[in-house]
Design a protein around this nucleic acid. Sequence first.
DNA 1: TCGCAATCATTAACATGTTAAATATATTGC
DNA 2: GCAATATATTTAACATGTTAATGATTGCGA
Lengths: 142, 142
Amino acid sequence: MKQLPSTQRSLPIALIRARENVMTPIRQMLSESGLTEQQWRVLRVLDEHGALEPSQLAKHAALLLPSQTRIVQSMAQKGLVERREHRNDRRRTVIEITNAGQAIINDNAAKAAEIAAQIRDKLGPRRFETLLDILDDLRDLE
Amino acid sequence: MKQLPSTQRSLPIALIRARENVMTPIRQMLSESGLTEQQWRVLRVLDEHGALEPSQLAKHAALLLPSQTRIVQSMAQKGLVERREHRNDRRRTVIEITNAGQAIINDNAAKAAEIAAQIRDKLGPRRFETLLDILDDLRDLE
DNA sequence: TCGCAATCATTAACATGTTAAATATATTGC
DNA sequence: GCAATATATTTAACATGTTAATGATTGCGA
């Protein structure tokens, strides 16, 4: 009979720890702008893709829709994003980044790129790419 | 100047997605016992290490102390764990698994091992170990 | 065109994540 | 042996994660 792996070599726990480690410097950076990591992801995605519908935004930012709804609401209040109605389908909304949101991206892009490069250097470019590839292979586990 | 990586190749987002994918079958299993993944981790750790102080338990289960406090409180109410006072140091507490908690471990161990094996097979043992190794290398990012 | 299923999104309720403040006990230095 | 500091944990407050229920709109078929 198969054995449970030791929690020391448990993939879920390893993933949680890795995320914690990776996010620590990013959170430090963002705290100066008063952003959470999720809000930063929303800005990043909107900057990269332009205006998006909620479900697309949620997908790109790796957020569940209920979280996304709340996050966008609070970001709209702060003036970082705006919501428009979809032309043809009134069930839908389109969310876009504002100038204020764009400014936060601009203010933090260099630092964020530096942190990303630091992580890449720590692992080595080869292992870094390998990591992303293997993580991607974990899709469709059933 | 360094460029921000595309969100498509962002490590934080990749880690979130990977965890989501890995946890989906585990959550399905646990929902039948009415456990969250965090509660399951607490049981796993206590089963593996025996009675532990809160801070040690939190470390092994990859939980922050405030979360750990709440989780253990609710698990104690359900009778899955018990808390005792530390002999010498009354600041401390010791948490241990109960028979009821142990029973849940026993009921789910085979299925959990099967899920873990499935993930390992999906990646291949070699890549699986590589993944754990690289994730581990993300410690001490500064 | 009416009614009903399908789609998209939000709301609700509860658990956890996260940071800061508070509490309680130990330890140390004087 | 007492005040100041350090340690261990909990509480508080707010943001997000998660699942289920609800709301709103569209499209389709009788």
